[in-house]
């Protein structure tokens, strides 16, 4: 039996978040103003909460200052995750083509260092055909770009972007007295994770309420509601909720590497637990499937123990 861990009065369960391998890339989108970069990025990352139905998971990683982008303009960095390089390529083509190429003043660059590259995906390589033969390839400072004539001038994007091996499905669950307490804690966690590099929270506002279990009584569904954590099913099913728990919310974290996910989970959990007793946070736990789903296990005690 492991030692009990309590943070600001909140019990941290001795369990682990179970995550799985993914392929990821980072895209840097710039535009004439932060607003237009954001428009492009938000559209690009829309409907990208879960690979199950969206084909990928994507979100804005950070907004970038002019000094941080390849072309010195304001921008946004986006992380895009999928289960394979092929899936990633498909989503990249569609989303860049529909959401960045279309958006005024934008340009798109790869954001993964070449030396970290596992594999290269086409970016401009397929988009260039929009130029109908008038597209121009250009090598600048060792990188190859495509210049596609569009109605506001030229759409500039890199020929290829690097992909790396990454991890999806880092998570933790906030068990709280009631819905408002759970939401407030989740918001604190999101705010703590937002400035971090290498991770994204793909769900709306960074939070998911529809935690799931594997399987369903309906044969067509692969997953269904996580009944053990549903407060409205207490008494009908075997519950995992402690007494007094009225709501649970989950944060799902995709990251480029295990350390970044661990750091994000730790920062998020600490923020959720801050002043937890008073704010009605009861416990922190994490979702796993007994180690069957993925090779990456983030043990809550170990993560938090590693960080004073």
């Amino acid at each position: 039996m492991a030692e009990a861990l309590v943070l600001d009065g909140v019990a941290i369960e001795d369990t682990f978040a179970e995550a799985f391998g993914m392929r990821a890339t980072r895209l840097v989108v710039t535009a004439a103003s932060p607003t237009w970069a954001r428009h492009a990025a938000q559209t690009f990352t829309g409907f990208a909460t879960s690979v199950i139905a969206c084909g990928c998971e994507a979100a804005i990683e950070r907004e970038l200052q002019p000094g941080e982008t390849p072309d010195g303009r304001p921008g946004v960095s986006i992380l895009l995750f999928a289960l394979s390089a092929k899936d990633l390529q498909k989503q990249l083509d569609r989303r860049t083509g529909q959401c960045i190429l279309t958006c005024p003043t934008t340009a798109a660059y790869g954001g993964i260092a070449a030396d970290a590259a596992k594999e290269w995906l086409g970016l401009g390589r397929s988009l260039r055909y929009f130029g109908d033969g008038w597209q121009i390839a250009k090598r600048i400072a060792g990188r190859r770009y495509w210049r596609v004539p569009v109605m506001d001038g030229e759409f500039l994007c890199e020929d290829t972007v690097a992909t790396i091996k990454a991890i999806g499905g880092g998570n933790f669950l906030i068990v709280a007295r009631d819905q408002s307490a759970a939401l407030a804690a989740a918001e604190r966690a999101v705010a703590a994770i937002e400035p971090l590099w290498n991770v994204i929270l793909p769900f709306p506002g960074g939070v998911v309420r529809s935690g799931s279990k594997v399987g369903s009584k309906y044969r067509v569904l692969p997953a269904s509601t996580n009944d053990a954590y549903c407060p409205t099913l207490v008494g009908l099913v075997p519950t995992k909720l402690p007494p007094g728990a009225g709501a649970v919310l989950e944060l799902v974290i995709d990251g480029l590497d295990a350390d970044s996910i661990a750091l994000a989970m730790a920062e998020g959990i600490r923020a959720a637990c801050r002043d937890g007793t008073r704010r009605g946070v009861l416990a922190i736990t994490a979702g796993n499937y007994g180690g069957k789903l993925g090779p990456h296990h983030f043990h809550l005690h170990r993560i938090l123990g590693a960080l004073p």
């Binding site: 072309d71 400072a141 210049r147 001038g153």
Partner: peptide, 13 residues
């Protein structure tokens, strides 16, 4: 007359 991003990047480099 054009101020193209690609040319700016090029000249910066």
């Amino acid at each position: 007359r054009h101020d193209l991003l690609a040319i700016r990047l090029l000249l910066d480099s």
